[in-house]
Simulated scan of single mutants.
Amino acid sequence: MPFTDEEVDALNEQERAYPLEFFQAFAKEITVYEDDDIWVVDKPAGLLSVDGKTLKVSLLARLERVNPAVKLIHRLDMDTSGLLIFAKNAAAQSNISKQFIERLPQKKYQARVFGKWQEVGATGKISVPVRYEPTTKPRHIVDHNWSKNALTLYEVMAHEECNGQTVTRIFLKPVTGRSHQLRVHMVHVGYVMIGDPIYAEGTALTIAPRLNLHAQQLRLKHPVLGAWMDWESPCPF
């Protein structure tokens, strides 16, 4: 949910007051892999990837307190948890950014949606354009007239119970990387992600304490070694 101006000020002030040891401990806790060129971390839900216009509390800012040379490559929504890769020098940033442009990295997310969707083991794709809608900020919408398509592959994993309600656990693989793509694609097929503070309402929103979307797997080529590398983060829900 959006923060009030007073809450933003309090969070910013609290962040500025933390000692260096706080950021070092935070970085150590979330680090999945690190070498001279790259830094793979497991982002907590509820933390911005980069500073916002007013809220200056983010994953990038915290990592910069530990290593000022760290460089952004891609992002996750504030409400999403999971794997993010950062570069530790300009050459690595350029190499991996080019990989993302060429759609070489492979990403897989795990999510839970409200209701019983399809049969276990079902696979398919959702291919509809997604764009930002300024009249309903920060929402994005499906717009069939939009020029940039968005493609998501899916697999139904299980039907489960969450606080007395039926939910469906799914794997989602974004082929394209549009903002809010996975969340909007699931809304489009009629099965909103539970705990989603932007798109869910009623029971679908309150059934879970956070958005049930997690970047679980990441695979790409090391920018120096050239070898494919794989990382995985346990799903927290």
Rank of each mutant, 00 (worst) to 15 (best):
G226A: 06
M186P: 11
P68M: 01
K88V: 10
V184K: 10
N89S: 06
R112M: 14
P209Y: 04
H74A: 10
I207M: 13
I96N: 02
A17Y: 02
E102M: 12
N67D: 15
D230V: 04
T135A: 11
K43G: 03
E29R: 15
I194N: 08
L218M: 13
V66R: 06
V66L: 06
R169H: 13
I141K: 14
I207H: 12
V167R: 03
V40K: 07
I38T: 08
L20Y: 06
D51S: 01
I73N: 02
V189R: 11
E34T: 14
M157F: 00
L151W: 05
R65E: 09
V32Q: 08
T176C: 10
C235G: 00
L172K: 07
Y132M: 06
Y18M: 15
G195I: 07
W146K: 14
K28T: 12
L63K: 02
I73A: 06
W117M: 15
D36C: 08
C162A: 13
P234H: 00
D35G: 09
Y191Q: 08
A92W: 01
K43L: 06
K28A: 12
T80W: 04
I141A: 07
K88M: 07
V66M: 07
D9G: 12
I30F: 02
I73S: 05
G46Q: 07
N149Y: 12
L59M: 11
H140R: 10
R183S: 09
I73G: 03
L182R: 08
I170A: 11
M229C: 09
L72V: 09
P197T: 02
I101S: 10
A69Y: 05
F3S: 00
M193H: 11
H222Y: 02
A158Q: 06
V32K: 10
A122W: 09
L60R: 01
V167N: 01
Q217W: 13
K107D: 05
Q216S: 12
D35R: 12
E15L: 01
K53N: 08
V175K: 11
Q118L: 15
R103I: 05
E232F: 03
P234M: 00
T123C: 13
L104P: 02
T176S: 11
H214G: 04
D9C: 03
I198N: 02
T168D: 09
V187Q: 15
V57L: 01
P68Q: 05
V113W: 01
N163I: 10
Q106Y: 11
H222L: 09
D37G: 06
L213D: 01
I141C: 13
Q99E: 13
E21L: 05
R112N: 04
A25T: 13
A90M: 06
G195Y: 04
H140C: 14
L225C: 02
V66A: 02
Q217H: 14
L72D: 01
A204K: 03
H188E: 15
K221W: 00
I30R: 06
R131E: 13
W39H: 01
Y154F: 15
D77K: 06
G115Q: 06
L63Y: 00
P197Y: 01
F26L: 08
Q110D: 02
Y199R: 07
V167H: 01
Q181R: 10
E133W: 11
V113M: 05
R139H: 11
V192I: 14
R131M: 10
V120D: 03
T206W: 09
A122G: 11
E6K: 12
K148P: 03
D9Q: 12
H214A: 04
E13Y: 03
P234Q: 02
I170V: 15
Q216Y: 03
E64K: 15
V32G: 05
Q217L: 13
K88T: 11
G82N: 04
